[in-house]
Design a protein around this nucleic acid. Structure first.
Lengths: 351, 351
DNA sequence: CTGTTAGCGCTTTCAC
DNA sequence: GTGAAAGCGCTAACAG
């Protein structure tokens, strides 16, 4: 009884059935050239006849590649991270890799130890880092020392143009701020995101640029330091909506914080958008589920994931000269929360 | 130059350094008994001196076990699924397994083919099925045929007491409905979840039981068939809030749908909770981010994940007689959306 | 309690 | 274009 009959065919069974050497079967499996078309077909026939599947562990052991990649993250909850996860999963699997999720938790040393152990144990071929981990330099050093390729999503520094993926937050924030200005708003509040985050500062930059373009002064009292959390949005709302010169519009660096501001507005009996225009960022499901629906910026999470996956695999497989989109555009979703015109908005300008 | 010096120590290097056979090293790696304490320590010392890590692919190939498990899911977005994912990740990794995410998409055949391919290619040791996949019988058959253990989260049928993990939705829905009744509500609307889902029917059962206990008649016009989606919540709101005998309270089978109802209430100018009490299910972040904050049931997602992970690994490792919690309890979060008393609620009863 | 032998199923290297 | 031999790093089965 050969192994095929025992339920699992091996490369030897296929080789025997196709009357070739197992090396030839291996060539077919790996889509190598240098196999005559006729031979290739015979092998493929044998594989399907025997219901053959190669064994990952055997090829990993022999080839010293695992076909495993890991996504390194911290605090996976945001809509954005979820989008990335799902996009990475898609594109890695398309190219024959499996995605491992590696949450980085605990203190610095714990994180590094766990990662090294897992990376070496599983011989992980490459890594995708997502914010805010992207900025953990000891982690990046470890990856370099492990000598495995990695790609970073939206890192703040050290751009080499090949190992990171960026999107155009600045432009989106600019356009959204401009939209508010065009609706007649002059007092536009801004709620910042976490300080160590590239996206946060790019969004703020876009806001500033729009003000400048339209010759509006920056009023520092209208800028609130948030941290992307709902509760910091509540704090922002309490602060901004209690000002004597209350803003007529508030742009939040994410939807969670916008929801916080919105709660305060509701509690104060302020009508949105008539007395307060409100915009968020992320276009999370929340944006459509709160009332009124929130104008928000949809980040190209899945597109970024696609680019990240392909960049990483190209590195792993030493494919050079590939072209990738540089600064992936965002998509603004205009909804009810900003859809009121100057006349209404001006009503609430403090006398 | 031995392999240790080339950057990666192998079991042979450890064996040589510790002056034992590699089988003994293997015993230490696998925490087997039958190793003298002194020997064990010598081996451990050698491992750490050489910065040795075993190789997963080598042990998989030799042992025919991959230490890989997969979570089979469809449509991973709900807060609940995310909780499960994160809990599974935790507990599998604690016990030395890595979790693979396997989204099941496409038509029936595609799903089965992809799963079989991946399962056999990676030699996955076990599977966790989460709703609604739990009810896909062809998938369950495939798993049986693959002869690998699986655990199902909240399946509708075929309970064997060992391969599924349940939580007590019925009781939670009962208690929450009772809470509404005690607030004075007599016209309590109910928005059902997806019909093929065990949890959905258990929640409805709890609602019915509470009505019965309190001798309230079931009014079928107050029961709306939703599908867990936000838009079905909007539809439910439009229907229920247009009734002549409008409900004074609505219990939705999840938070998304409650948010939909809430939007309609806002649009109709109905004040929540004063004119309408509203409750959801899942205790997703949304529940705290909408206004007013939503009373909701927190499912024990992480606890269920823990039980599922341990059940599955025990099956994989043939550990018997372990005890597991049977019907894991839910936790009701009472918030503003139901915090008004009879007197107020009765105000809005149509004349 | 420890060691020996023989693979696991594939790829690598090199030969033809 | 194809094949033979060697070996990846570990565990299984058995022996002692």
């Amino acid at each position: 009884m050969n192994s095929a009959e025992k339920g699992r065919a091996t490369i030897n069974d296929v080789a025997a059935k196709a009357q070739v050497s197992k090396k030839t079967v291996s060539r077919v499996i790996n889509n190598e050239t240098n196999v005559k078309q006729e031979t290739r077909e015979r092998v493929q026939q044998a594989m399907s006849d025997l219901n053959y599947f190669p064994s990952l562990s055997a090829r990993s052991l022999a080839s010293k590649r695992s076909y495993l990649v890991a996504m390194l993250y911290f605090d996976l909850h945001a809509h954005y991270l979820h989008q990335l996860q799902s996009g990475l999963l898609d594109h890695f699997s398309t190219r024959g890799y499996s995605l491992l999720l590696h949450p980085c938790e605990g203190d610095n040393d714990t994180i590094l130890q766990n990662l090294e152990r897992k990376a070496r144990y599983m011989n992980i071929d490459g890594f995708v880092l997502v914010p805010p981990l992207v900025h953990m330099s000891s982690l990046v050093s470890l990856l370099k020392q492990l000598d495995k390729p990695y790609v970073r999503i939206a890192p703040k520094e050290e751009h080499d143009g090949f190992s990171e993926v960026l999107c155009n937050d600045e432009q989106a924030a600019y356009e959204l701020t401009q939209h508010l200005i065009q609706k007649g708003h002059r007092q536009i509040g801004f709620v910042k995101g976490a300080a160590d985050c590239l996206a946060a500062s790019k969004r703020y930059d876009g806001y500033l640029r729009a003000l400048k373009t339209h010759h509006l002064p920056l009023d520092p009292t209208l800028v609130f330091e948030g941290d992307y959390d709902f509760t910091s949005g509540v704090a922002a709302g309490q602060h901004l909506l209690s000002l004597v010169r209350r803003p007529t519009a508030i742009f939040c660096s994410n939807d969670n914080m916008a929801a916080g501001v919105l709660n305060v507005a509701h509690a104060k009996g302020l009508s949105v958008p008539n007395q307060l225009a409100l915009a968020g960022y992320d276009d999370s499901p929340l944006a459509q589920q709160i009332w009124p629906a929130l104008t928000s910026v949809a980040q190209p999470g899945r597109k970024m994931a696609e680019v990240a996956a392909n960049k990483l695999i190209d590195k792993i497989e030493n494919i050079e000269n590939a072209e990738y989109p540089q600064n992936i555009g965002c998509d603004i979703k205009y909804r009810a929360s900003t859809q009121s015109e100057l006349s209404l908005a001006s009503l609430v300008e403090p006398a």
